[in-house]
């Protein structure tokens, strides 16, 4: 109930879906507050696109609860989706239409009059940088132009919730910058909620206020980006003697991890910002001199990597077998994607 009150834009709880014998979603929980830019991240095959299809009512979930803009999305009720815009990863418009015609038809589909649809089409063609090609047939568009048209198509109904699946695929650097600017402008000026699915973590970190990490069809971590990166931030602590500091920190419940960093008495300590004063106090009480503390919040990439690793370890423990696949490999793939 609390979840519902706090999450009017999008709320998923315990959502499951399987394609025949393949379990695509095992337990997806998402809570996207209104007027936020929310990143849905995960490795390829984690269930991001399936989750989006379930949210849009294109797939009927086999279990769990889905609420879109405060209303139950199962069974699918058309009026709920009037204020939802979507850009699919492989967006395609009918090739025999012009960009403008496609947007006008999209406006009509959303219940606008022809005049309203024409005005909206004009506005969004300009916003995405397509006015010069507005009256050319879509079959002549480049991939980047099609993505821009798809974005305009998602926004033409002035939606309250916009779902973007891998929105920067096929865009050139300028297009990516324009997209980022447009999302932030709509978010700040009109309070539009964005659900952005991506495996490009740098892009998510720049845009999103909150993220949900999916792994093998399950939500493994969710929360505000700032909180997640701060909570998992690592500090470089220069101490003496190192061995005593290691034993103090190793036994401390508030310390998420500690390791040697170099040979000159430096330790890399993973702990939240709120635990720093406590660390200093306990080290000093144990007779350890603290010479220097430096470091900052972690990147989203390392948060993601650890969340995936932890999920795989938990899964392996649950099944009593060695870790499946290679979490490092997965993280490395994510790192490559982000670069």
């Amino acid at each position: 109930m609390i979840g519902r009150m706090l999450c009017p834009a999008l709320f998923l709880r315990g959502v499951t879906y399987s394609f025949g014998p393949v379990q695509a979603l095992t337990a997806v929980d998402l809570c996207v507050n209104e007027a936020t830019v929310y990143g849905l991240i995960g490795l390829n095959g984690a269930g991001k696109t399936t989750t989006i299809r379930v949210v849009l009512g294109l797939l009927r979930p086999h279990g769990g609860e889905v609420r879109v803009l405060g209303a139950d999305a199962v069974p699918r009720e058309p009026r709920v989706f009037r204020r939802v815009g979507v850009l699919f990863e492989d967006f395609a418009a009918p090739s025999y239409l012009t960009g403008r015609e496609h947007l006008v038809l999209q406006g009509l589909l959303l219940g606008m009059t022809r005049r309203e649809a024409a005005l909206a089409a004009e506005r969004w063609l300009g916003a995405v940088g397509l006015p010069a090609k507005a009256d050319a047939r879509v079959r002549g568009y480049s991939l980047g132009m099609r993505r821009r048209l798809g974005l305009a198509s998602a926004l033409v109904g002035s939606p309250r919730l916009v779902i973007l699946d891998e929105p920067t695929n096929g865009l050139d650097p300028q297009g990516i910058g324009d997209l980022r600017g447009l999302i932030l402008e709509l978010h700040r000026r009109e309070g539009v909620t964005f659900l952005l699915s991506s495996h490009i973590l740098g892009e998510v970190e720049q845009l999103c206020g909150a993220v949900g990490i999916l792994h093998r069809g399950r939500t493994v971590l969710e929360g505000p980006v700032e909180e997640l990166t701060r909570r998992a931030g690592s500090r470089l602590v220069r101490v003496a003697p190192v061995e005593r500091a290691l034993s103090v920190l190793g036994a401390a419940p508030w310390c998420e991890g500690v390791e040697r960093a170099g040979v000159d008495g430096a330790l890399r300590v993973r702990l939240g910002a709120e635990a720093v004063p406590r660390m200093v106090r306990e080290l000093v009480e144990a007779g350890v001199d603290v010479h220097e503390i430096s470091g900052s919040a972690e990147t989203l990439e390392s948060v993601f990597r650890r969340a995936v690793e932890a999920a795989e370890e938990a899964e392996a423990d649950q099944h009593g077998k060695p870790k499946g696949g290679s979490p490092e490999g997965g993280a490395a793939r994510a790192a490559r994607s982000s670069s």
């Binding site: 058309p78 939802v84 979507v86 395609a92 418009a93 009918p94 589909l109 959303l110 219940g111």
Partner: peptide, 17 residues
């Protein structure tokens, strides 16, 4: 045709049954 062109999905995602 629309299914193979992937244009049907956008219509189905709209406010229609």
């Amino acid at each position: 045709w629309e299914r193979s062109e992937r244009t049907l999905r956008d219509v189905l995602a709209g406010p229609v049954r």
